[in-house]
Design a protein around this nucleic acid. Structure first.
Lengths: 179, 179
DNA sequence: TGCCAGCTGAACATAGGTGTACCGTTGTGA
DNA sequence: TCACAACGGTACACCTATGTTCAGCTGGCA
């Protein structure tokens, strides 16, 4: 029940970051009073949604073997599946102004940055900084979520799209057709 | 003068989309009354900022030879230079709800989509839809602007970062070092 | 000097979001 | 059946953003 509330709040606030608490409550099929009882202020609601997304990512991180050489592929595939909950984290305006959230986000980025740095010894190019590669990954994820949202991209195609584009780029290599 | 006002409005609204008109006026060193005289409503201001960005893109488009094989590289290099004005266009929440703006944005995208489709015969891969490639380009631009904004990326490095990443990807191809 | 145009700050009314208190309803368990 | 907790709705007070009006100030110009 409370889970459904957070999910609804995520999608409503993601579609319109200025949506009122009344809008959120109505979309969740809940009285505004009840919403206020669970989340006393708007800031509390936003923080709860963000922390929920971070919990989701944490639970995914646990399942990924960061020592493996395919850790990035695995991580991305799992993140794509999370969808809007995580998109909220990347795009909701003003989240970075919350001290607690920002440190949690940075803490979440760190192991991935370390992974990237390690893989720059082998499968990742060395002439780009790790943070740039990280942001490129995030951008790919965001593109996929957005495309899914607009109905342009099938969710099952998303991981392949993201991985292909981020790793290999959009240029046509060689003369052969790679269909 | 009015140009400076629009630039300031762009950066203020981009940093905090919920910023009040008072904030914008103060940042521009202008009275709130004056701001209201130039842009009667908040929506008018936002639309003016967006249209200004679209004008900027139009003027850039005119300088690009869309028939050339290097048109994409040229276009991206020029777009990177535009910075936050165009970033506003891609990220300000709710812009797509303005009918006039949405059609203008779509009209702006069309020639690029056509260009991508044409280049998919030669230098761009055919196993990804054109719209996906377009959004990948935009994502690269956005990453660059954000990184520049945070001071992590030198503006002069930006075009190379974007082009390299988008076209070639972040994977290390071959065993040789490509520094 | 007098006129005018543009800008400014102050003041005001309005609207909408937000947070709180209160009350009636519903459903559950003793 | 009764007690109790959870929920929904109404009503209220408060605050902020917004849009408008008005009067004063400044600088250019005839």
């Amino acid at each position: 029940m409370s889970v459904h509330l957070l999910q609804t709040a995520t999608s409503v606030l993601l579609k319109d970051p200025t949506a009122s608490l009344g809008d959120v409550a109505r979309a969740a099929g809940v009285g505004r009073t009840t919403l206020h009882k669970r989340f006393p202020t708007r800031a509390a609601l936003v923080r709860a949604v963000a922390n929920d997304a971070l919990d989701l990512i944490d639970s995914v991180s646990c399942q990924v073997d960061f020592g493996s050489d395919d850790a990035i592929e695995d991580l991305i595939t799992r993140l794509v599946a999370l969808g809007p909950r995580v998109e909220f984290l990347l795009r909701f305006p003003g989240l970075e102004r919350d001290e607690e959230l920002r440190t949690r986000i940075e803490a979440m980025d760190q192991p991935v940055l370390d992974l990237i740095t390690r893989l720059q010894g082998t499968k990742l190019r060395r002439d780009l900084p790790a943070w740039w590669i990280l942001h490129t990954l995030y951008a790919g994820l965001f593109n996929a979520w957005e495309a899914i949202n607009y109905g342009r991209l099938a969710p099952l195609d998303a991981p392949r799209f993201v991985l292909t584009t981020v790793f290999e780029g959009v240029a046509n290599v060689g003369t052969a057709d790679r269909t």
